[in-house]
């Protein structure tokens, strides 16, 4: 309790505004990766579960904390891996296809 609740509330409010700002302009084509990416980010609760496990005593607390670490790891690892897999597939028009279209253009505008 070295830091007061008010300071944490301040951080909370500022983070809420940043969260709103930062995704304001995400195009709808990226909504799925955004959802899964932000999903991965809240997996950082793993840090919380590790800390809690550190101070857990007795079978009940340790069992619950153990479960929590597993769940949080699923969240964070799965979230980032699946997002990466999705984003890997987003590619711009490959370079070889642009010239192909260009060849067609030349054929019609052959006088050039």
């Amino acid at each position: 309790m070295s830091t007061g609740i008010l300071e944490f509330l301040t951080i909370f409010v500022l983070a809420a505004f940043v969260g709103n700002e930062v995704i304001g302009r995400v195009p709808s084509i990226l909504h799925t990766p955004l959802m899964s990416g932000s999903n991965a980010i809240h997996g950082i609760v793993l840090v919380g579960t590790i800390l809690v496990m550190g101070s857990a005593h007795g079978a009940v607390q340790i069992t619950l904390a153990f479960l929590a670490v597993i769940l949080a790891t699923l969240n964070i690892v799965g979230g980032f891996v699946v997002t990466d897999r999705m984003l890997e597939m987003f590619k711009a028009k490959p370079a070889e296809r642009v010239p192909k279209a260009g060849v067609g253009d030349d054929a019609t505008g052959g006088a050039k």
Binding site: F8, F12, A16, V18, I23, S38, N39, L51
Partner: peptide, 24 residues
């Protein structure tokens, strides 16, 4: 949980997702 543990990182990450998720 971040509030409960006095942990800034959890507060920031959780709130970021909470706010952006709400907007989305």
């Amino acid at each position: 949980s971040g509030f409960t543990l006095n942990n800034n990182l959890l507060i920031i990450a959780g709130t970021l997702v909470g706010a952006s998720g709400m907007l989305l």
